[in-house]
Design a protein around this nucleic acid. Structure first.
Lengths: 144, 144
DNA sequence: CCCTTAAACATGTATATACATCTATCTAGG
DNA sequence: CCTAGATAGATGTATATACATGTTTAAGGG
């Protein structure tokens, strides 16, 4: 009986990581039929928003180490969802969605929307906005 | 110049994961001299709070898959920070802090406190409480 | 033009994370 | 007691994540 309800942990990091795990589970489940993980979806969506962008730049937007991105991009490339070319600065790799990547993203968006809508309903508009604002604030503060 | 400021991403999951990465970076940096990662610290602290507990139970508290925990516990065990014994139910593993684990936690707490205090200052009491409350809410909602 | 320094990315390694599958054990019926 | 189903963990595999280090290219100073 009385399973110990989820309680606030004293550590902000632990709380956030836990929420991140739980939330990722939802998104992953929804995207699984497409063979997409949440992180991969995020990269595709980000590329769709930015257009062609160097790896470093994408890393900054996602607060993700560029070498971490290398591994994820490898998967996206293997699936044909992105295209990469050298920039004028030959050290840079310029990333963009491929045609197949746009198609995959288009397939994924409705599922993603459903999860988003369900959560927005659960939190209410205010809670939702607050959540986006606060987590964004965390990123800013932690990035300084 | 004008580095594109961190902007809110349309995806809650992406936002939360990004905040999680950024925040973890802070905690990791602070704990690195002790050879502790944020996740490992979280487990030690949780065990300190719960006392002896089966792996499954700890997984529930942390919203972490029990098999994921197996890998982290392996590291903690290798370092001598936890002790494990079979429960009356022979399938269960009962986890607890070892003496060395309590010592390690004791060394880590002041560093952890410093990061927590700095963040609490940046967010203000209200922002801080709100953050804990909302992320906890996310875990609950996503766990249902 | 050469050299030093720095930046962008690749690679090796370790940890974090979860799922599918397997084994051992428990529980409930019969 | 025996068996069928369920549960706790272990293990194999794949991805997510970052750091240390190495390579290539760029940028600046002599």
């Amino acid at each position: 009986m009385s399973e110990p309800a989820i309680a606030v942990l004293p550590c902000l990091c632990a709380n956030l990581r836990r929420a991140s795990r739980a939330l990722t589970h939802l998104y992953d489940k929804s995207l699984r039929p497409l063979g997409l993980q949440a992180t991969q979806f995020t990269v595709l969506q980000a590329l769709s928003l930015t257009g062609e962008i160097p790896q470093k730049g994408l890393g900054r937007i996602l607060s993700m180490d560029s070498t971490t991105l290398t591994r994820t991009l490898e998967i996206l490339l293997r699936n044909g969802w992105i295209a990469i070319r050298r920039g004028r600065d030959r050290r840079e790799r310029l990333l963009r969605l491929s045609w197949a990547g746009e198609a995959q993203l288009k397939r994924a968006v409705p599922r993603w929307e459903k999860v988003q809508a369900r959560l927005r309903r659960k939190f209410g508009m205010d809670g939702w906005d607050n959540l986006l604002k606060l987590t964004n604030e965390v990123t800013k503060v932690a990035t300084e």
